[in-house]
Simulated assay, not measured.
Amino acid sequence: MNRTTATPAQHFSRRVRALALACSLMPALAACTGSPSSPGTAATPGGTEQQGGTEQQGGTASTGSGTADSSSSAATPASLQLKERLDVGLQLPWSVVFLPDGAAVISERDSTLLKEIHDGRATTIGEVPGVEPGGEGGLLGLAVSPEFASDRWLYAYFTSGTDNRIARMKLARDAGGRLTLGEPDVVFSGIPKASTHNGGRIRFGPDGFLYVGTGDSQRREQPQDTRALGGKILRLTPEGRPAPGNPFGDNPVYSYGHRNVQGLAWDADGRLWASEFGPDVDDELNLITPGGNYGWPTVTGAPARSGFLDAKVVWPSTAEASPSGLEIIDGVAYTGALRGQRLWAVPLSGETAGTPVAFFTAEYGRLRDVAKAPDGSLWVLSNNRNPDFVLVLEPRP
């Protein structure tokens, strides 16, 4: 699984292209079917870092080609049924998680507020202290403690005045049933910050440890340095220490060579997958191996170069993807596309990924996060619609 670089002309000539049909939401049926975006073939290499790989609003809304491993035999969903659209006045929502009682908690990047959605209504829980939003930074990823029923910890990744950091806060319900927010306890700090490439996704894995996706923070020397925190996936104890069994000893780094990881999810067999922003080309879906080097900034995509791990899916055009949140349901990986303004569904089969399928292309604008609710539905957060909303979807295999 190696990589080589290529010129733009070589990149174009090697690209396997097949149009994906844009799917539209039929008001009467409130359902959408997807069409394959490309034949599954080897992916193409990358180029230089440009604006296309940031979270900027814009880009084309047409469907495009994501290249993948053609050996996967898994099937994508036949449709995604729209169950509900929650217009609850959100402003730049970044992450959604669910409490054991079924309530959703959402972070708003720039307002630094946490909001609860329960029974179709949004209520402000509180403002997270110490957050200094700016550019792509602010109040970002959330994670619920695996022992929440007893410890009541909610974890948040956010940008402070000096760095990106992770704090945990107690959530409790008062006598009136409203959630209240305790004081933050910073468990991990020192992740580099910048106006872009701040990473920000956090999730607890099946092993009970906290996984953290970071960005290179525009410091291109960091991703290949296993002593640095930028451009990594980190693995921590709930208290913020390097988790036992990490590949580099007493070091929080789990994998490296990343550019900007904003999606983390596990399949049914416990394999970790991650979505990652490319520069002007080559957004990625990666299968994560402990200690693995995913190439940035030396290479991008899947060009089969010794010493680096290839992406399992590559979207050659960042205007079609710029993937943020990631969720896996019934063997299908769903990722929200920002510039691409669509929901991508990728069938998984073991360690391989099949042909990506696009849903809702240009229907709802930029899509930031996706998460599985306790009832099995898929929640999708819009981004930059002012106000933003939640799509509640039912995957139908």
Rank of each mutant, 00 (worst) to 15 (best):
L381M: 08
D375W: 04
D369S: 11
G292Y: 10
G307K: 14
D369Q: 05
V314S: 10
N286L: 04
A42R: 14
R259H: 03
Y364S: 06
P387D: 10
Y334K: 03
V187M: 14
G257T: 01
Q218I: 13
L86I: 05
R17A: 09
A42D: 14
G240Q: 04
Q218N: 15
G350S: 03
R219E: 13
T300F: 04
T63S: 12
A337M: 15
R305T: 15
T159N: 13
A362C: 01
T41V: 08
W153N: 08
D225G: 07
G138I: 06
F308Y: 14
V144K: 00
S71M: 08
G64D: 10
T298L: 15
P100C: 12
D225Q: 12
Q341E: 11
N2S: 14
A333I: 04
T159S: 14
P279W: 03
V212S: 06
D225T: 05
A28R: 12
R305A: 15
A42Q: 11
E363Y: 09
S306T: 13
E363H: 11
L29M: 10
Q224E: 07
G263R: 07
D269K: 13
D280G: 09
S37W: 08
N164V: 13
T226N: 05
N293V: 00
G177S: 05
T237E: 06
R85M: 12
G263W: 02
L86G: 06
P39R: 11
A274R: 08
L229M: 12
S35V: 01
Q57L: 12
T60H: 13
P290L: 04
P374G: 13
P77I: 01
P39M: 05
Q341R: 15
S145A: 04
P323M: 00
H197S: 02
D87C: 01
D282A: 15
A156M: 09
P184L: 00
Y364W: 14
P133V: 13
V16K: 13
E394P: 02
G59Y: 09
G231Q: 08
P39G: 08
